[in-house]
Design a protein around this nucleic acid. Structure first.
Lengths: 356, 356
DNA sequence: ATAGTCTAGTAAATCGATTTACTAAATCGT
DNA sequence: ACGATTTAGTAAATCGATTTACTAGACTAT
């Protein structure tokens, strides 16, 4: 209503002129109150209000060297998926809550199917939180080129940048050991995508599998190390790869169930995959855990309430986000801080003794 | 690794000088390829790469008049809560997915306990999506002052700005009529906060209740209109107000159950409140729906799977977000577009006939 | 009374680009 | 072969602020 008339743009210069002071003085009214008399300062502020001046233009301010007041979040998945995934959401919550406390905005960088480095190159932010990207992902490279502070979450360390790590291998290994103790000897793995452009489907030759994702690398190593300790070779393990969706879990489990010998235990790299797997196995007439044991990863909220309750590797999802935020906030005093989070196996009812 | 040495900052001017062309020509290489010979353009681009120039500085570009490539999201709740709320999340998903398609970033504006207009005033964005703010919320006023395109979602229309509306009153009214048809005559209402700083608790005098939130206003009117049609006066309805959390639902329902006459039906303005209410009523030894019927609002994913399945008002949550995004994307051609979404009563088992 | 210190304010440089108006050289039609 | 149009590139203004170095005047100390 009030400002319907397209009045000429009013800048700090307009205000300064109206008050009859220099541009610098007007600027000081906002940035260095102590350097001027209260009288003049009030005159500037009031004139600004009268003229409808809304405070220094944030772009100009940032260009001159100020902070932007926002952090960019770079993820592999599309934003749509990231905001849906039950393992990512608590991370986002922890991140948002902690950033909020520091009055920092969070910029969700779009990540389309064909990832576009320009979207990272052009983001207006003070730095990035980089979540689980492959070492050579174009988006990571683009972020590095920006020469801004980075917080790396669940991916390879890069010297000079902050890092939030998780004991992936330990959790995965505990998971596999648990199944070994239950007597299982035939395993299938439902893997998250090992590369950005990975296509869903079985992995033919495990040894030749090109793994760019650190999370996949470490979880897989954790599984395989445990299996190796009882003499099970990687070549004896069937692996199916795809994004963390129930659909992939279902398809993957159905494929795994058709291998021979049929796995009596399936290690899924996410709870969502595990849930999908159980659905798929049931559709084949199999019973969980009697016919097949299934383990997940993440211990999402759903895991405990699912039928059957999921055996899973718990990780502190919210805390992971909060830690990333805190490392970013401390970037000036401690540019390459590190936080290492631990995992814990939670045994529930989706796993049971191998059949005699 | 490569750029560890703190080399002097390289700008477009550096590149131009190195190539031996003017600054304008270097700029054209990025923005107006057609205006120059391929030879020179390639020379500029290659020199830029060699010098480690990462493309035009986004802040400078935006300052000069270009787009930022991002939209700000302004919400009432803290971000932490917004990212947790099952009714807000699908909205966010729809929004993020659709923005992503247009390669727009989403800036989550922090919204601390004491809302700070500066965070809106200083956000570096092309416009705002304003989600369910009160007409006189300071954050809305701050957004208006920015003179940027706005998309208003579930709140008062403002001429010149895009609008996404929902038939709140219709849904609420259908809900109440459903209960009336089941024979209920004593009602309690669990309301969302009517103002930003509303404190949780019972509303003493309904007539004197200061309601700033449009959502609350419309849902309440929908309920009361339906009740009025059978002669039930607002003064006969007990109301309890609080944020959309299970805890509030529980506390509110327990308070409502202590009123006399005790309501046989509770109208909750969100499914989360309804779920909390059911928990609270059960803790008092009451059975749902035999002793008390409970209705929700939103029809979140949980509603159908809850025990008992919730009678609720379905609204197209994802579509609401997608519509907001589309309106923003079309802002240049259609600055004040409107989308009106409808609601639908979904009857399940949390409501039943009033006891004789 | 003189020199030295504070205070309040200013002019000009700077941040890193984009764009407008203009010019010189090359191409065109006849 | 001569004026008219295109093409390729440039100089300078501009976006909206912040900051540095400087100055004039008021105040303090001896």
């Amino acid at each position: 209503m009030s400002s319907q008339t397209t009045r000429a743009k009013v800048t700090l210069a307009t205000v300064a002129q109206a008050v009859g002071v220099s541009l610098s003085t007007a600027s000081n009214a906002y940035n260095h109150p102590e350097r001027m008399s209260p009288a003049v300062r009030n005159r500037v502020l009031e004139t600004a209000r009268r003229l409808g001046y809304d405070g220094p233009n944030p772009m100009a301010r940032s260009l001159r060297g100020g902070d932007v007041g926002a952090v960019g979040l770079v993820v592999t998945d599309t934003l749509g998926h990231a905001v849906s995934d039950p393992a990512t959401l608590p991370f986002l919550q922890g991140l948002a809550t902690e950033l909020e406390r520091a009055r920092l905005g969070l910029v969700l960088i779009p990540s389309v199917a064909a990832p576009d480095a320009r979207l990272v190159a052009q983001a207006i932010v003070d730095g990035f939180i980089v979540y689980s990207l492959a070492r050579d992902d174009v988006l990571l490279e683009a972020a590095l080129r920006r020469d801004l502070p980075l917080v790396l979450v669940e991916q390879s360390r890069i010297s000079g940048h902050a890092y939030v790590g998780l004991d992936q291998a330990g959790g995965a290994s505990a998971c596999a050991r648990h199944l070994l103790e239950l007597g299982h000897r035939h395993f299938g793995i439902l893997s998250l995508p090992a590369q950005r452009q990975a296509t869903e489907g079985p992995i033919g030759d495990l040894a030749a599998w090109h793994i760019e994702s650190d999370v996949v690398r470490q979880r897989l190593d954790g599984y395989l190390d445990a299996l190796a300790s009882v003499g099970i070779a990687p070549s004896a393990v069937a692996v199916y790869q795809g994004t963390s969706t129930e659909y992939v879990g279902t398809a993957g489990a159905q494929w795994l169930a058709q291998q021979s010998p049929r796995p009596t235990a399936i290690l899924a790299m996410s709870d969502v995959l595990a849930v999908g797997a159980i659905t798929g196995l049931r559709s084949l007439g199999l019973t969980i855990p009697d016919d097949v044991s299934v383990t997940g990863f993440d211990d999402i909220a759903l895991a405990a309430g699912f039928d059957p309750p999921l055996t899973s590797v718990r990780q502190p999802l919210r805390e992971k986000g909060a830690a990333a935020a805190r490392l970013f906030i401390e970037r000036l005093t401690n540019p390459s801080g590190e936080v290492l989070l631990s995992t814990e196996l939670v045994v529930r009812s989706s796993t049971g003794p191998a059949r005699a």
